[in-house]
Design a protein around this nucleic acid. Structure first.
Lengths: 211, 211
DNA sequence: GTTTTTTTTAAACAAACGTTTAAAACATAC
DNA sequence: GTATGTTTTAAACGTTTGTTTAAAAAAAAC
């Protein structure tokens, strides 16, 4: 008999490697992380990373795609909900802040790794059909036609929303150094900033001089 | 006689290494760039990088600090100008867009390297005194007191301005893949986006319901 | 309890890394 | 010219890299 059942230690070891790899890759990136870093973080022998995941590259892709799903999935789900545009925008911003608070280095990780190797994203893009985008776009254009919101397209609205959320975390290390913040200071700053961002985006969209 | 004059080939070689290192480091980051990458990009022998710059680390710091100056200097200069807040904000956004158009990977580079090693920024921070920030902050609070702008502090206004500019370039590779953009498409997108960002920030600041 | 399969280990592998060396090539001084 | 100092080179240095191996340990099957 070949494939045995997923017994305790096996399942646990593979997951321990994944969790360690997640931490190390998010912190140091693909180039900065070594197999030995990950093995040490997981508390296992170096050879086990390749025993379970063939290569550093394959282990990275495994983690990278999970991080892409974490990064995109929640937002896409909200975009596909049957709620008003106003609710949708509020939910998207709130969701992104929550996601970034829980995973402060996620955005910088995604941006860096896609920049270094854009083709890695192709597989991920296949999984999340862009049809969803055009449905969101359709809802926006209907609202524009009704005069509910300022004329704008999804391709501009989306980066506007996420930029104001994610940039704060992408530049977290810089901000903290510049303004001499502690972690607690930064958390308080983020909470206050969230209020301002929500106000800015919604007032920009919904309170405008109609032509 | 020890130190000779900065003759032709010497000056040119050192500068060729710097220019090559700039390109390679900006594209691949410190961890992803190798000494041989840089030597090849400069068209020189590997040993020359260490002959002129002692080590990869020292060469990187040399480039990193130049990039930090490019990143911060122009913005700080505008913040210290004796112009109205409205002019200042317009100039800051315009300057940042111009800077990013000319150096599309600058922001991601700065963010990544500060994240990986925040202490590298300490030397840079010394050079650009934070006193400037508090002068900008003072101008803002005076405008707030006069009721010219919405109540806000520099610590929130600054990331709001740069986030909407820089995030577009930080996520350039992602955006282009997501929306199937060519370089020309991206340039057109940026120009349109700039108009919207200026409108959003200024209307948020200057057109508000007074309490 | 013995055999067979799966998991883990220590040790080694070749390749790539940053760096150094020692000599060649070049330029300047005398 | 020769001598002296500077720049460039090819080759090698010792480490660290990702990966593999072969044997030990553990678990499962019989």
């Amino acid at each position: 008999m070949k494939r045995k059942m997923e017994c305790f230690s096996s399942k646990s070891t593979e997951e321990r490697i994944r969790e360690a790899a997640k931490r190390v890759f998010l912190e140091k990136g693909f180039d900065g992380a070594t197999s030995r870093d990950i093995a040490e973080a997981a508390g296992i022998n170096i050879a086990l990373t390749n025993y379970y995941f063939r290569s550093k590259e394959k282990l990275f892709i495994n983690i990278f795609e999970e991080m892409c799903e974490l990064f995109f999935k929640g937002m896409i789900d909200i975009m596909n909900k049957s709620i008003t545009l106003r609710e949708k925008i509020a939910e998207i911003i709130a969701h992104d802040f929550r996601l970034m608070k829980e995973n402060p280095s996620l955005s910088l990780f995604i941006m860096t790794e896609i920049h270094r190797n854009p083709d890695r994203m192709v597989n991920v893009l296949g999984g999340m059909k862009q049809i969803h985008h055009s449905m969101f776009e359709q809802q926006i254009q209907e609202a524009v036609k009704r005069g509910d919101i300022r004329p704008i397209s999804a391709i501009h609205l989306m980066p506007m929303m996420v930029a104001n959320v994610q940039f704060v975390f992408i530049g977290k290390a810089m901000h903290m150094k510049m303004w001499h913040m502690s972690e607690a200071d930064f958390d308080a700053f983020v909470d206050k900033h969230q209020e301002l961002v929500v106000e800015m985006i919604t007032s920009f969209l919904f309170e405008f001089e109609k032509a």
